[in-house]
Design a protein around this nucleic acid. Structure first.
Lengths: 195, 195
DNA sequence: GTCTATACATGGATAGAC
DNA sequence: GTCTATCCATGTATAGAC
């Protein structure tokens, strides 16, 4: 399974492309960023770049995936009540990527879309993880009296985290963490943490 | 102010184009719908259509504006606690338009984007209206004990309504009304309506 | 396997005639 | 106000060099 030798160089180049693409999107936004521009930054011709990816959207999907995995490590260990906050804070530094994420999420409803599988996986995964967190809180009695079950709380929290990004894209002065905190406060969790 | 004569025909044609464009987007989705396709449906050539709009995105913006005004009448009179529910229900019938809306909202962070002004108006407007509703509820004592002020509740509710659309675009089986109801339930409003 | 050159189809945009 | 013709950029597909 240890693929050494001929693959090594190509893999490195592929990662370099993803890294450069991430940069370009973060700087100039998703819109108006052509593959030729990315290719040029990698000292490559367009077809040279396309050797590594089946299509543009395939590349975008891999960018998203790489980004997602990078961010995942960042909050893997986090088991607190608001696991989203950390990734949100990181996203606030890269508007282009937030735009990319939201645009792709909006466009990939079509089953033919290359990113369809990505989000079709990602959303349920996120919901399940969040639901798990809320179930723990419920088991601990922290959610006593809350009239919404953990699964629906997960949907709600995810909607808040996604939705606030849309507002933020249109007004950068908006605090992306506040609504997450507010929702937690509504659940009474904040009160429980009072020293 | 009553512009009669030469303008009448052009205005009618412009509205027809917007109506047709709305149809096409609703049917075939926002992605993969070219201006030539829209033009053909209006018995026009591409430049014939472009006579009415500065650019593609300018046209999309006007489509959004027309759509928004049409929907506004639908809920103008509504003063209840969840004014979003009605428009959400209507949106559920036209995935293409929801996709268009979200995509534009994601892309228009750039001040140069034609839709920038539209959303820069729309979001604060919505927040203000929602904040007003929550302030009324607060004045009536319905929000006693809620640890979040009306303005932030408005941001929160808007985020929920926008965010659930993203989830819905990726999984049509998701109930777009439920999270709105759940948030209201968390605010204790549902309890107040118990008979 | 890695990459260049080239050709093609389609999209949005513009110029200028009618 | 609308068309024909044209232009440029983009994503994509193919042929083939190394």
């Amino acid at each position: 399974m240890a693929k050494r030798g001929p693959y090594e160089k190509g893999e490195a180049k592929r990662r370099e492309i993803l890294r450069v693409a991430l940069e370009v999107f973060a700087e100039e936004g998703y819109r108006g960023t052509s593959l030729r521009k990315v290719a040029a930054r990698c000292n490559l011709s367009l077809p040279g770049l396309m050797h590594y990816f089946a299509s543009k959207e395939d590349m975008l999907t891999q960018v998203l995936r790489a980004r997602d995995e990078a961010g995942r490590a960042h909050m893997e260990a986090y088991t607190g009540p608001d696991p989203h906050t950390e990734s949100i804070r990181e996203g606030a530094r890269t508007p282009g990527l937030v735009e990319l994420f939201v645009s792709m999420a909006a466009a990939c409803g079509d089953p033919e879309h290359p990113a369809h599988a990505f989000f079709a996986e990602r959303y349920p995964q996120f919901r399940t993880r969040l639901a798990g967190v809320f179930e723990e809180l419920a088991a601990a009695g922290t959610l006593d009296g809350v009239p919404v079950p953990p699964e629906r709380l997960a949907v709600l929290m995810l909607a808040v985290a996604d939705g606030i990004q849309l507002q933020w894209l249109n007004d950068r002065s908006i605090d992306m963490e506040q609504p997450v905190k507010d929702l937690m406060a509504l659940l009474g969790v904040a009160a429980a943490r009072r020293p």
